[in-house]
Design a protein around this nucleic acid. Structure first.
Lengths: 224, 224
DNA sequence: TAACGTCAGTAACGCCCGTTACAATAATCG
DNA sequence: CGATTATTGTAACGGGCGTTACTGACGTTA
């Protein structure tokens, strides 16, 4: 609704503006906010908690980030680029399909258990159940979850073209299935599952990939 | 009075107690509460919403159910027996492993999309992120999620004994994987996925079951 | 140096939450 | 019929939430 957008580009290094400069590091405060949101979720995280973790007071927070919703969305952006950009790039760039999927799922298991506290994925669980007035934030995260499925689907489409998947494979359903499993891993992680267990699940998920057997087609469709 | 011996146990509308009888059906009110909790989650569901849906006022609710937490737990019990007892029984009693798992996952897809609004599973998402003072409720639901994994594991152990799974199959990981997928289905359902799509994922999940080395392809349909 | 513009800290605002006094009502028991 | 006991509806309680006036403090600009 309001500004708050890109006055932040002149962060702490250059005070070209006139007034009193801020005494805290904006990027560092954002990272602290990310950890609080990650552990607690959007609505259970209170402004008091956030202010304590960020080391600032409410007026400073509102001046720098707008309000709770925009702070959360900015934290989500930071979260995505910091923790998930590399795994997704790996999935897309690794040429061998099974290696790509296996390593992606393993890295996902690592991300989901990276904090000391059990958290799961911020995009999956951050707004899992919220009151109706926070539905705009909920919708924004749902769009991000949809992106995740699209990433899987594109990778499988390429694999299909490359002959790494049997002809007639339902890549859309396959992508949905992996996306579903990935989201389930977040629930597991928040329930305190150890990283090793998530990695075992990640490895087991490779069985979902149909391998083009030389003799018996396992495409699940029967023959024409 | 000859009604003394009559309905001592048919307790729906019999008020053998002394005071003023309640004017609402407790079981029906509980079911209304279940729907509110299912759609909104534990903390976002307000007492005002619950009272409106149940058709009663706060004092009646507190007299009949204790407080919000105990009402929620009772609603969860009602939810489990009403919606999940039959699928779990089916998983345990169907002798053919692939049929058992396939039908269970398909019925799960139906339950998760049974309400008009997108909800997912109440046990998985009901306390997905809550404030610290509701952690007892959160822990109770986590125990229920653990029961779900145990159900899978027991079924797979039996299948291993029966020779429906190859020797050396890691049934614990297999159970965790199916449990993870089941929990992911809840996220999908709450994101508005159609029942048909959840059923496709359910069918695709059968590929996770290792086929005994008898030479039959794992096409997810069983064999004639 | 004097004026100006932005940040910092305290304290408060209005709102909604779960929960409960309170008094009236309606059934059973002696 | 009183006396007792439980339920009902109204209205309120204390507390925590996100958010913001208000007053100084500080650094830049004229």
């Amino acid at each position: 609704m309001r500004q708050h957008t890109k006055d932040a580009m002149t962060a702490i290094t250059s005070h070209r503006s006139k007034g009193r400069p801020r005494t805290f590091d904006r990027a560092q405060a954002l990272h602290s906010a990310l950890e609080v949101f990650w552990k607690r979720g959007y609505e259970p995280a209170t402004m008091g908690e956030l202010c304590s973790a960020m080391g600032i007071n409410p007026p400073s927070l509102y001046a720098a980030f707008g309000n709770k919703a925009s702070l959360f969305m900015e934290a989500v952006e930071h979260y995505e680029t910091t923790y998930w950009a590399a795994p997704w790039r790996l999935l897309g760039e690794e040429p061998n399909l099974r290696v790509a999927v296996g390593r992606f799922m393993t890295e996902a298991a690592a991300v989901l258990t990276s904090l000391d506290a059990p958290c799961g994925c911020m995009v999956v669980l951050g707004t899992a159940n919220v009151s109706p007035e926070a539905q705009d934030v909920h919708d924004a995260l749902r769009a991000l979850r949809e992106v995740s499925r699209t990433n899987f689907r594109k990778r499988f489409e390429r694999a299909l073209d490359a002959g790494d998947l049997p002809l007639g494979t339902d890549v859309a359903t396959l992508a949905s299935t992996f996306n579903t499993l990935l989201q389930g891993l977040s629930v597991q992680a928040r329930d305190g599952a150890a990283r090793a267990e998530l990695e075992r699940i990640a490895e087991a998920s490779l069985a979902l990939l149909p391998h083009d057997g030389s003799g018996a087609p396992a495409d699940g469709r029967g023959r024409p």
